[in-house]
Simulated assay, not measured.
Amino acid sequence: MIILRKKLMKLLKLYHPQVYFQKVPHTAQFPYIVFNLPNAYSNEQQEVFNLDVDIWDNRSDTSELESLASKLWKELNYYKHTDDHIQFSIYRENRLPSLDEDDTNIKRRKLIFQLRYFDRRLFE
């Protein structure tokens, strides 16, 4: 799981430099991406995860936020990774509309993907 998180971090940083897993430090500058793998189930020898990608910004102009969300929505669909240890593929699942936040100055877009993961090391 740690290797998967590191690979996802590296992948998302191709699109934006500020990427975090689950929690954001108080010093983080907007905009930023937060990803999470909130749940999974087994399908034969494969794990199937929900990959949640949240993009946050605090500007009134949502152009950058929308552009980044659209780029991730397009580029991550059918993404495939294979190396000596793991392989995974990503598929679009749900793109939520603008979400209401407690702080009305904060804007968020939520993208939900299905991530199919196989760890070869389990069979060594």
Rank of each mutant, 00 (worst) to 15 (best):
Y78G: 11
Y79E: 15
L11W: 09
T104Q: 15
S70T: 06
R121L: 09
D52K: 14
I33Q: 09
Q18H: 11
N94Q: 15
D83S: 13
I106N: 07
V48G: 02
V24I: 11
L72V: 11
L4R: 08
I106M: 05
L115G: 03
A40G: 00
R59W: 11
Q45H: 14
Q29S: 02
K7C: 09
K80M: 06
K110T: 07
E44C: 02
N77W: 05
L4E: 08
I3L: 09
E66K: 13
W73R: 14
D54V: 06
L99W: 10
K110R: 15
T104I: 13
V48T: 07
S98Y: 07
L122V: 02
D57G: 14
N58E: 12
E66L: 15
K13L: 10
L115H: 08
Q114D: 06
Y15F: 12
K110W: 00
K80Q: 12
F123G: 02
W56Q: 06
I33E: 05
S67T: 05
T104H: 10
K10M: 03
I3Q: 12
N94E: 15
P31I: 03
F30Q: 04
R5Y: 01
K10G: 03
P97V: 10
D54W: 08
F88M: 09
N36R: 11
L14N: 11
Y20G: 02
Y41V: 04
H85G: 12
L111I: 07
V34P: 04
F113A: 06
D61C: 00
P31K: 04
K7M: 13
H85Q: 15
N36G: 03
L76P: 01
P38H: 12
Q87F: 00
K23H: 08
P97L: 13
A28N: 01
F123L: 10
F21H: 11
D52E: 13
D52R: 14
S67P: 07
T62D: 12
Q114V: 07
L72D: 03
Q114A: 07
K23L: 06
T27I: 09
K23P: 09
K107A: 08
F49I: 09
P97K: 14
